[in-house]
Design a binder for these strands. Structure first.
Length: 1041
RNA sequence: GGGCUUAUAGCUCAGUUGGUUAGAGCGCACGCCUGAUAAGCGUGAGGUCCCAGGUUCAAAUCCUGGUAAGCCCA
């Protein structure tokens, strides 16, 4: 006996019971251990931050990361799955700062505050909070059915992980792929720290800033100046160049005030005439490129010596526009990213006279110690006094402010360590070419373009909680030592090292050749850390050397689209730099999950349902299937909708479960045991569903091999429909009538085979339901879990194409028949004498073979195969373009209307003779598409090569039979109304106009269908119910026998 | 501003190498249901394939240029 299965099972409870079973029996561990010695299928898990709770995006990625490894496990591979945590970085530091504020009232903001609080205390605080949500993560991830090892997880803050990062860095160092440079970044002088671009975007304000237009006097032109405009006057003392656009038109105008000549963009002239109320007459025009190389006098002489190093000349920059200003841009390379790059290209050195608190330093002696913003007005005054100020105005604009302190940000060059990505660009592209991307365009276009335009990678951060850069700098700044392991550090410093965080190692100094080396202050970008994951999770090369090398690169990873610039990139850069290989061979990229209204998921707006609520309502299997059956698996956005879940539930989960419940119910009634050859039934329907199932297995296997997960669910929906709404519905009686035990056994064997193997095929996608079905049906035979089984293989010998085609034709006839009945208001309960079928060429025998099914489905007495259809239809013709087009080309222009104009008789002639002459061409039947058009006086339907007609003439006999069926229907409804069980026997009484004739013919049929042991005998009239049949009244009474 | 993606029925989406009358589900309308399932079954209506050009005998499909939305970068 199988365990009874209710069609109304609570799936959430069922899933939890299965989770308990997996945990108790260690099924996940067994699924890995069972494949010991088998070829590995290598999976890398991208580490999330545990500073927040998991959302749908994580659940989706987790589902993909579960389905694929489960599939390959069943295909015989050993798949190790370790969870990882991203522990370092700014998000953690910010969380810590917030926490310290809330819990201890400490308002630490910026470099000095943190250093005063103590980097050791701060880092340890970060360490203490970084894993605080891991328990919640584990609960949700497990509840989704994801199998992943949380115990042997990796953490980017583990000493072993950090040591491998050092090793990776040292490799790059030794390959000369690391250098120190500058980068212009948003900078908070209040916090004395650079901010990320992301942080800089967090607090924009509308403010008024001074907008000054300044004269830069040319050296070799008497009384001529170039005008440049800026909203940051404090950067003018650091000016080292002016930039123009080579293709921009410039004009030279006369300033009537002093007769001097001024140069500015033509497009900006009108603006300046307006604001200065001067006529500024044009005396000359210049192309931007003609101005390149012109020397000018520096505004101030603080950095006059830079003139010897290419400064104070006009250079070009692609960023110059004529939207505002003068079309000439003042360049202070320390304070603008575009300035920095343009000056670097022109060979100009950088000067930075502003300290970390935003104050001018000694070289700018006039303003030394003054905050830059405060200095603005003093600088303007100085320029005015010296006649260099052309115009002074005010600009309203949106400007970034520090999100922590609300002070204006400045842009400032800071020391930065880079990896030379540009130098290895070709190798990166070569690595990418070895990766299979789903969807393909991400790899061939998006990622390819990104690599192609890659700039050197800034790997250092001026923060605290991270893996320190293992670089020690000599006191005079002339020499660096890079350290690649703990052992090396211990050897160089003589100290014992247990923890690599900065508060443990920064005090260690290295003495070499009489010089003292101290560690530089920077820590790694956390992307460098996660990009080192393939090596660091194994503590490579300090441990697991052979194991790691044998299993690199990964077979598979799966992450979101945002990782194109994140993990996908850093993995690829490091693996290519180190080993000239990609870090992964296959990747599935998922898109963004949005709320139902198309907006971003937002906790505060509550525009999406809580994941745990969804899981409890629909089950994790349903959620998994929904997520996987959506555009999000092709890297497009998904609007999360509960309706979509209902659809999966109704379309796949519920019918599958009901089919299973149906099987168990009847199998138990007849004490069925699977025995013998389960696929040996000769029955048409059995062979059909078994054949269809092989195709499904073959298709799903193909999709899984290619990681095309989004193709899987539609395949299943279609099969479930075929299984329940055709196979089971058509086979129902075979399961409950045991007059032919062999026939019944075939039916049970078939359905048993389908369910067990379907459970196996679906197990990676719906691990819970499949486990439940498998465990009940297997009855202790075979492995204890479906996930320990091998994946089913499509058996080609069971595929019967002829059978499938026959069934498809029969289903088409039935569908068209139903459509005809509805269109002509002929209800199915009324039997009809005959259906005439004009089958496609040569398919007459098929219709004969399928006649029984057609008769029953359409309630007709006979199926008549017609060879000549012309009594039912008349013809029209269209050209078969696929055949004619390539052959006749342009002639189609005349042939097309000629063919469409052919009359019925002409087409009939074509069909008889096989060819026709038209417009000078000889055309055969294959060159045409013949349409059959129904004649309006007949009940005829036609569709492509198939035509059917219903004989609607109702004889007395047909009417009586129809009446009998109506009676059965009313009686069955009554049985339900009075609360009888399906197996209860009844005594029946029927009275009414003209029912006598019907009863005389069909009493036995009525009794059999309604389980009536007596008809119109004895006491059954007591409770007579009035009903109507075809406009006539009948009275029906029934009592339980 | 740049790169990529998307645009097909009221909604969510399929649509193969260019080929004829472009499909599904939901929703809607009508009908059906006691022997698994009302979270069911059947039938039907519903389309300017974003716009404009181009290539071609033939374009939802290929090309060019727009428009709109999304993601990433600046």
């Amino acid at each position: 006996m199988f365990e009874a299965v209710s069609p109304k099972t609570n799936f959430a409870e069922l899933e939890e019971a299965i989770l308990a079973f997996w945990a108790a029996e260690g099924i996940f561990e067994k699924s890995v251990a069972n494949r010991e010695g088998a070829p590995e299928y290598v999976f890398y898990d991208g580490p999330p931050f545990a500073t927040g709770l998991p959302h749908y995006g994580h659940l989706l990625a987790g589902t993909i990361k579960d389905i694929v490894p489960r599939y390959w496990t069943m295909q015989g591979r050993r798949v190790e799955r370790r969870f990882g945590w991203d522990c370092h970085g700014l998000p953690v530091e910010n969380e810590a700062l917030k926490d310290l504020q809330e819990k201890q009232g400490l308002s630490l903001s910026g470099k000095y505050d943190i250093e005063q609080y103590g980097v050791d205390k701060f880092n340890e605080y970060c360490r203490s909070i970084v894993l605080r949500y891991t328990k919640e993560w584990e609960i949700v991830v497990k509840r989704m059915g994801r199998w992943v090892d949380f115990e042997n997880n990796y953490r980017t803050m583990d000493p072993s992980f950090m040591e491998s990062i050092w090793w990776v860095f040292k490799q790059l160092w030794d390959k000369d792929l690391v250098y120190k440079g500058y980068r212009v970044m948003p900078f908070s002088w209040k916090l004395s720290t650079p901010l990320s671009n992301f942080e800089a975007k967090m607090n924009y304000k509308d403010v008024q800033d001074p907008a000054v237009t300044v004269r830069f006097r040319l050296v070799d032109r008497e009384n001529t100046a170039v005008l440049a405009w800026t909203t940051t006057p404090w950067t003018l003392p650091s000016n080292l160049a002016l930039a123009v656009g080579p293709d921009i038109q410039y004009v030279e105008v006369v300033d009537e005030e002093d007769g001097g000549h001024l140069i500015l963009a033509e497009a900006r002239l009108a603006h300046y005439r307006k604001v200065t109320k001067k006529s500024l007459e044009v005396v000359k025009t210049h192309e931007g490129r003609d101005l390149l190389g012109s020397k000018y006098q520096p505004l101030f002489d603080f950095f006059a010596e830079e003139g010897d190093y290419n400064a104070f000349q006009i250079i070009e920059s692609g960023h110059v526009t004529t939207k505002d200003g003068t079309g000439v841009v003042h360049m202070a390379p320390a304070f603008g990213e575009d300035d920095f790059h343009a000056c670097k290209a022109a060979g100009i050195r950088m000067v930075d006279p502003v300290d970390v608190e935003g104050k001018f330093t000694a070289p700018v002696s006039d303003f030394e110690g003054m905050n830059v913003k405060e200095a603005d007005r003093h600088i303007i005054r100085a320029l005015k006094d010296r006649g260099l100020l052309f115009h002074q105005g005010v600009l309203n604009h949106s400007y970034p402010f520090c999100w922590r302190t609300d002070t204006p940000l400045i842009y400032k060059a800071i020391d930065t360590w880079f990896v030379k990505v540009e130098a290895i660009k070709d190798r990166l592209l070569a690595s990418n070419a070895q990766i299979t991307w789903v969807p393909e365009a991400i790899g061939t276009r998006r990622f390819h373009n990104w690599l192609n335009e890659a700039r050197d990678w800034n790997i250092s951060r001026n923060r605290y909680w991270g893996t320190p850069l293992p670089v020690w700098e000599s006191e005079d700044g002339s020499d660096f030592i890079a350290v690649g392991s703990v052992e090396e550090l211990e050897r160089l410093t003589g100290a014992q090292v247990d923890d690599l965080h900065s508060h443990f190692i920064d005090k260690l100094t290295i003495e070499k050749d009489g010089k003292t080396y101290r560690r530089i202050p920077e820590v790694f970008d956390c992307w460098f850390e996660s990009g080192s994951m393939p090596y660091a999770q194994k503590h490579y090369p300090f441990e697991n050397k052979e194991q790691m090398e044998a299993n690199f690169p990964a077979d598979f990873i799966a992450e979101g689209l945002d990782q194109t610039r994140g993990w996908f990139y850093t993995l690829t850069v490091l693996s290519t730099a180190l080993f000239d290989k990609p870090a992964f061979k296959n990747v599935v990229v998922n898109g963004l999950i949005l709320a139902e209204d198309g907006k971003k998921l937002s906790k505060s707006k509550r525009n999406y349902p809580d994941p745990m609520l969804i899981i409890n309502n629909y089950g994790a299997d349903c959620l998994r299937s929904y997520l996987i059956n959506s555009p999000v698996v092709r890297a497009e956005p998904l609007k999360f909708s509960e309706k979509g879940l209902t659809q999966i539930y109704r379309g796949v989960v519920s019918p599958l479960w009901n089919a299973y419940s149906f099987f168990v119910t009847y199998a138990n009634l007849d004490d069925y045991q699977p025995e013998g050859d389960l696929t040996g039934s000769p029955h048409e329907l059995d062979r059909w569903i078994i054949s269809r199932f092989q195709s499904v297995v073959a298709d799903v296997t193909r999709h899984m091999e290619n990681n095309l997960l989004y193709n899987v669910v539609p395949e299943l929906e279609n099969f479930v429909d075929e299984l329940t709404n055709w196979y089971i519905r058509r086979s129902r009686r075979r399961f409950w009538r045991s007059d032919d035990p062999t026939e019944q056994r075939h039916a049970f064997n078939t359905l048993y085979y389908i369910l067990v193997n379907y459970a196996k095929a679906l197990a990676p996608l719906m691990p819970f339901l499949c486990e439940a079905i498998y465990r009940n049906l297997a009855m202790g035979q075979g492995p204890e879990s479906v996930h320990l089984c091998d994946y089913p293989v499509a058996d080609q010998s069971l595929i019967d194409t002829v059978n499938e085609e026959r069934m498809a034709l029969a289903r088409r006839v039935v569908e068209m028949g139903r459509s005809l009945r509805v269109a002509h208001d002929l209800k199915v309960r009324q039997p009809l004498a005959e259906i005439s079928v004009v089958p496609p060429q040569g398919e007459g025998a098929v219709i004969d073979a399928m006649a029984a099914i057609i008769k029953e489905e359409l309630n007709v007495r006979t199926v008549n195969v017609l060879e000549d259809e012309t009594t039912l239809v008349h013809y029209s013709a269209r050209p078969n373009l696929k055949a004619l087009g390539p052959r006749l080309g342009k002639s189609m222009k005349v042939l097309n209307p000629a063919i469409r104009g052919l009359e019925h008789a002409a087409i009939q002639g074509l069909l008889d003779r096989g060819s026709i002459e038209l417009e000078g061409h000889t055309l055969t039947v294959d060159d045409f598409l013949i349409d059959r058009n129904t004649r309006e006086d007949r009940v005829v339907a036609t569709e492509r090569d198939l035509t059917i007609a219903l004989d609607t003439h109702l004889t007395e006999s047909l009417l009586l039979e129809g009446e009998a069926r109506e009676l059965v229907n009313r009686i069955q409804n009554l049985r339900k109304e009075v609360g009888l069980n399906v197996e209860d026997r009844i005594k029946l009484a029927i009275r009414g106009e003209g029912v006598a004739g019907c009863l005389a013919q069909h009493a036995a049929y009525i009794q059999e269908e309604t389980l009536a042991v007596a008809l119109n005998e004895g006491d059954a009239t007591a409770e007579a119910h009035e009903r109507e049949i075809n406009g006539k009244k009948v009275w029906i009474g029934l009592v339980k026998a």
